[in-house]
Design a protein around this nucleic acid. Structure first.
Length: 399
DNA sequence: GATGATGATTCCGA
DNA sequence: TCGGAATCATCATC
């Protein structure tokens, strides 16, 4: 504990602070109104006789102020009250104000406008984009859905994962806002408390409004750093949640057997042009319970893999051709009966596209080589026409 | 665990 | 923007 020294003009502390030698203090002895017109009969400060006494008086007050912290709370309160009522208080106060003004300690960095922290801006933007900050309108969930659909879509199963994501994001949002509110409330309370303290202290020591502002700014900065930490943690939580969601989305699940059949049927029955239109994709997606993007992916993969290894797909192609032919036959015999291939609304009128196998290398003609032609891909790049007339008839006989 | 199948992703060109 | 091609990552089977 620092030993308080008397603040008389001759005391070391007094010399150190230069209070007694301060011109304003000197002037105080002669010009301060409170010390000139005495109504209580006490000696004034204008005369040389009283000068020494008043200096001693001021020194006494200063000493009391400096030692106030060593006293108990009750004593200090009582002393403070006494000081406030002291006849020299206004004079001393003005002196302290002047000293403070000259030292400029209280004014330092009041004008320093802190540029907005770029990290905080990034965090704010991120939280806004993820739908954690700002008005709740499904931001993050919408972003997740958008990410999912734009890069391949979500399976029906993933809707569960999505709702899970949404609820967890909502939890994060709730916690974030609760904590933020707490911080803001605490900041507000603490600021009010400090301001009240400063206002109260301003009765005994010079506290300018700018100084109060500066103090408030300091408090806000401190709380802001806590908020930054909160925002950082929230961002991390969202990132973890998001990556988990995306990982789950990335997990591949094979399409159902029925879905694959539907897709294969369409593929092999449109082999001349295995590029389903938007409408066809939509229809296929509906039938298979997958998204249009998945349909596109499937056809993309199928085209490539088919072209790469036609012979490998020969059996499969024949199988689907046969199935389609059966369907065509059945619909030919009883047009009102839905086809049995499960191809739904796919038109079998495109039976001219039926794939019938690779062209015979030895030039031998199969019964279905005449008439209409079916395109098959050759040279790994182009589709060529292949004769397929009477295929249905042939298949009917063959069956 | 090895291997093939398969859905998804990425890059590139038209 | 779409499709081809290559590749990745996971599933399914043995």
């Amino acid at each position: 504990m620092l030993q308080q020294q008397p603040l008389t003009g001759n005391g070391p502390a007094g010399r150190g602070l230069g209070l007694s030698a301060h011109p304003a203090l000197q002037a105080l002895s002669s010009v301060h109104p409170s010390s000139q017109h005495r109504a209580d009969g006490e000696p004034g400060l204008d005369g040389s006789e009283n000068g020494l006494e008043s200096r001693r008086d001021i020194g006494d007050i200063l000493q009391q102020i400096m030692t106030i912290t060593d006293q108990s709370l009750d004593e200090a309160q009582a002393k403070k009250h006494a000081l406030n009522c002291h006849r020299m208080k206004p004079a001393l106060f003005s002196v302290l104000c002047e000293i403070k003004e000259k030292t400029g300690l209280s004014m330092r960095s009041t004008q320093e406008e802190e540029p907005q922290d770029p990290q905080l801006v990034r965090l704010d933007n991120m939280l806004l984009a993820e739908g954690v900050a700002g008005p709740e309108k499904g931001g993050g969930a919408a972003a997740a859905v958008s990410a999912a659909t734009s890069s391949g879509g979500m399976s029906p199963d993933s809707s569960l994962e999505h709702s899970d994501y949404k609820s967890k994001l909502s939890q994060i949002r709730t916690i974030y806002h609760t904590e933020l509110e707490k911080y803001e409330q605490a900041c507000s309370e603490f600021t009010t408390h400090v301001m009240n303290l400063l206002r109260e202290q301003s009765r005994t020591r010079p506290v300018s409004p700018r100084e109060i502002e500066r103090m408030v700014a300091i408090i806000h900065r401190k709380f802001s750093s806590i908020q930054t930490q909160l925002k950082q943690s929230t961002c991390e939580a969202v990132m973890i949640l998001r990556s988990r969601f995306l990982d789950a989305r990335r997990k591949r699940r094979n399409f159902s057997k029925q879905a694959t059949e539907v897709l294969n049927e369409y593929f092999y029955s449109h082999l001349s042009n295995p590029y389903p239109s938007e409408e066809a994709k939509e229809e296929l997606a509906k039938q298979c319970g997958i998204t249009m993007s998945q349909v596109s992916n499937w056809f993309g993969n199928k085209r490539i893999r088919y072209k790469k290894n036609i012979s490998k797909f020969q059996e499969e192609a024949n199988l689907y051709a046969m199935k389609t032919a059966i369907g065509a036959t059945q619909s030919e015999e009883s047009p009102q009966t839905p086809n049995s291939t499960g191809s739904g609304s796919f038109s079998l009128s495109g039976s001219a596209d039926l794939f019938l196998g690779v062209p015979p290398m030895n030039g031998e003609q199969t019964p279905y080589h005449m008439g209409a032609q079916v395109p098959i891909p050759v040279n790994n790049s182009r589709f060529v026409l292949f004769p397929v007339s009477n295929f249905v008839v042939y298949m009917r006989r063959w069956l």
